[in-house]
Amino acid sequence: MMPEQEIATREKQEVQGAEKTRAGRYFVPAVDIRENENELKLWADMPGVAEKDVEVSLNDGMLTIIGKVSPAVYDKLSPLYTEYNVGNYFRQFELNEDVDETRIKARMRNGVLEVELPKRERARPRRIEVTTA
């Protein structure tokens, strides 16, 4: 077995491009995407986001992920020293694969979003019975 690698921190990147109508900071979550013949699976690191504050949607082949952090956590805290920024998460992917929207599943566990995107079953060849008159 390979020795476990040590983790290094990467600074959070703020979302570039089209501005959101709602102000507040949005960061790009780190994502893994894996594909096999049956499905696409996506994981996104979104620490600080509770299950109820995640939004996953698929619109015209565009997968959108939004995670909101609760500002209430920081209500009575004054920072002494900070190494990471706190903000919401936003990321979009255009899906090339034909995904069955009705079977998408998403769950949140320990600050990681996991999305299962099953591929649509191919239309099966149908045999047409030929009957004699």
Binding site: L77, P79, Y81, Y84, V86, R109, G111
Partner: peptide, 24 residues
């Protein structure tokens, strides 16, 4: 800096609050 996990330190009036992001 760059060490993992990143840490934020706060004062909540009662004492010290240490927060660290450890997703997964």
């Amino acid at each position: 800096y760059g060490a993992y996990p990143p840490i934020n330190l706060f004062d909540d009036g009662e004492g010290l609050v240490v927060m660290a992001e450890l997703p997964g």
